[in-house]
Amino acid sequence: MRKELSILIIVILGVFLALIAVDLTFGAPDNSAMDDYFIRNGQEQAATNNIVTTVVFDYRGFDTLGESTVLFTAVIGVALMYRKLVKGDADENE
């Protein structure tokens, strides 16, 4: 009974996701004013051929700063968590 129920749920979920995927269109967004601005002015304003990098590091640089801070905080968290485990190391001076 449980097995049939889980198979039914999986099939319903799969059909649902497949129906969504059928209607998707790639490469033709509805609102493209911002994209057109970046594509038209990116090479001139940032002197870069790669528009993706221009958006990530120049137009949206503040987001990238936040992303780097998140990565830094995550690594600090992992280091703190493992600190007690590796405390006995002789060749570490932390």
């Binding site: 002197a47 870069t48 051929n49 990098t53 221009t54 590091f57 990238t64 780097s68 990565l71 690594v75």
Partner: peptide, 19 residues
């Protein structure tokens, strides 16, 4: 070319590598 973008790429690359 690119202004500060290559410098920022190098900085983020060093950070992600170490992290």
């Amino acid at each position: 070319t690119g202004g500060v973008l290559p410098l920022m790429n190098i900085a983020v690359g060093i950070e992600v590598w170490g992290g």
